[in-house]
C-alpha cells in the first residue's frame, strides 16, 4: 500500500508540471514585481535603480488620486447596489415565484457568463446617440422623455453612471444566486416559530432571516470587493477610461503606465496599490463581521 501510494516517481510526475507552471508564471512574476518597484524605465532599455522615487511619486500623482476616487465611487455604488438588488431579487424569487424558480434563476444568470468585452460593446450601442439612437435613447424618445436622450458615455457627468449601470446589469445575477442559495438553506422552523409568535412577514425578514444570512452577506461583500477593486475589462471596453479620466480605474492606469508609457517600475507600484486595496478591504470586512458575530 505504502509503496503504491508513496510512489516517488508517480508523485513527481503528477505534481511537477503543475508546480513548475505555477512557479514560473505566477509566483516568480509576483515576487519580481516587488523588485521592479525600485526601478525606473523599461527592463533591457533604460532600467535604472531609483531607490524610493516611485513610492514618493505616489503621493503627488494627481491621476492616481482621480483613479482611486473613481474606483471608490464605483466599488461603493456597484457593490452596494449588487448586494441590495441581489438580496431583494433573491427574496422575490423565493417568495413570489411558485413554479420555475430554477428557470428564472438560470435566465437571470445569463449576463454573468457573457464576455465582459462583448457586453461593454453592446452597451456602447445601447447608450449610443449617433449615427442612430441606441436602445436606451430610443426608449426615452418613445416614452417622451426627450431630456434624457443624450450621449451617455461621451459626457463626463454620465459616463460613470453608464459604466455602473452596465456592471450592475452584468453581475447582479451572481449575487441573486448567492443569496438565493443562502435563503433556501435557512432552517424553516425558526420562521415558523416566529410566525406562531405572531411576527409579521416584515419582522420575519428583518429580525429572523437577515441575521441568519450574515455569512452570506459577508461572502457577497468579499466577492464584490475582490471583483470591483481590480475592475478592468468593462471600463476599457465601454469608455476607455474617458472622457478624460472620468471613468479611469487604477488597473487601467497601471496598464497604461507600464505598457503605453514604458514605466514598468511605477506601474508595479500601482499594481501593488491594487493588491493592498483588495487585501485591506477584505480584512476590514472580515473584522467587521467577526466583531458582530462575537457580540
Amino acid at each position: 500500500m505504502k509503496k503504491v501510494l508513496g510512489n516517488k516517481k508517480a508523485i513527481c510526475l503528477f505534481t511537477l508540471p503543475a508546480v513548475i507552471l505555477f512557479t514560473c508564471l505566477v509566483f516568480i512574476p509576483l515576487i519580481w514585481s516587488f523588485t521592479y518597484t525600485f526601478f525606473s524605465g523599461q527592463p533591457g532599455l533604460d532600467f535604472e535603480f531609483n531607490v524610493l522615487d516611485n513610492y514618493i511619486r505616489v503621493f503627488t500623482d494627481k491621476t492616481l488620486r482621480t483613479t482611486l476616487v473613481n474606483n471608490l465611487i464605483y466599488v461603493v455604488v456597484v457593490g452596494g447596489m449588487q448586494i441590495i438588488l441581489g438580496f431583494l431579487i433573491a427574496m422575490l424569487i423565493n417568495f413570489g415565484v411558485k413554479k420555475h424558480q430554477n428557470l428564472v434563476r438560470s435566465l437571470l444568470f445569463i449576463p454573468v457568463v457573457l464576455p465582459g468585452v462583448a457586453v461593454a460593446q453592446m452597451f456602447l450601442k445601447i447608450y449610443a446617440i449617433t449615427p442612430q439612437y441606441g436602445l436606451l435613447n430610443s426608449f426615452f424618445d418613445a416614452v417622451g422623455l426627450d431630456s434624457f436622450v443624450k450621449a451617455w458615455t461621451g459626457d463626463p457627468q454620465t459616463a460613470m453612471i453608464a459604466l455602473i449601470i452596465m456592471d450592475i446589469w452584468k453581475a447582479v445575477g451572481m449575487y441573486i444566486l448567492v443569496f438565493y442559495s443562502g435563503i433556501i438553506e435557512l432552517p424553516e422552523d425558526s420562521v415558523e416559530a416566529a410566525r406562531i409568535d405572531g411576527a409579521s412577514t416584515w419582522q420575519i425578514i428583518t429580525k429572523v432571516q437577515i441575521p441568519q444570512l450574515k455569512p452570506v452577506f459577508r461572502m457577497a461583500l468579499i466577492i464584490c470587493i475582490t471583483a470591483c477593486f481590480k475592475v478592468y475589462d468593462s471600463p476599457v471596453a465601454l469608455t476607455g477610461g474617458g472622457p478624460g479620466t472620468a471613468t479611469m480605474m487604477p488597473s487601467m492606469y497601471m496598464y497604461n503606465t507600464a505598457f503605453n508609457y514604458g514605466e514598468f517600475g511605477y506601474g508595479s507600484v500601482l499594481a501593488l496599490i491594487i493588491l493592498l486595496e483588495c487585501a485591506l478591504f477584505t480584512l476590514v470586512v472580515g473584522r467587521i463581521f467577526r466583531n458582530k458575530e462575537a457580540e
Binding site: 503543475a18 508546480v19 505555477f22 508564471l25 505566477v26 509566483f27 516568480i28 512574476p29 509576483l30 519580481w32 514585481s33 521592479y36 527592463p43 533591457g44 475582490t226 477593486f229 481590480k230 478592468y232 488597473s251 497601471m254 496598464y255 507600464a258 505598457f259 514598468f264 506601474g267 508595479s268 499594481a271 501593488l272 491594487i274 493588491l275 483588495c278 487585501a279
Partner: peptide
C-alpha cells in the same frame, strides 16, 4: 503554496510576466 495564487490580482504579476 498553490492556493496562495487565488488571492493575487492578475495585475500584480502582469508586468514582470510580460518582460
Amino acid at each position: 503554496y498553490v492556493l496562495m495564487g487565488m488571492m493575487v490580482p492578475v495585475q500584480v504579476a502582469l508586468i514582470p510576466l510580460f518582460s
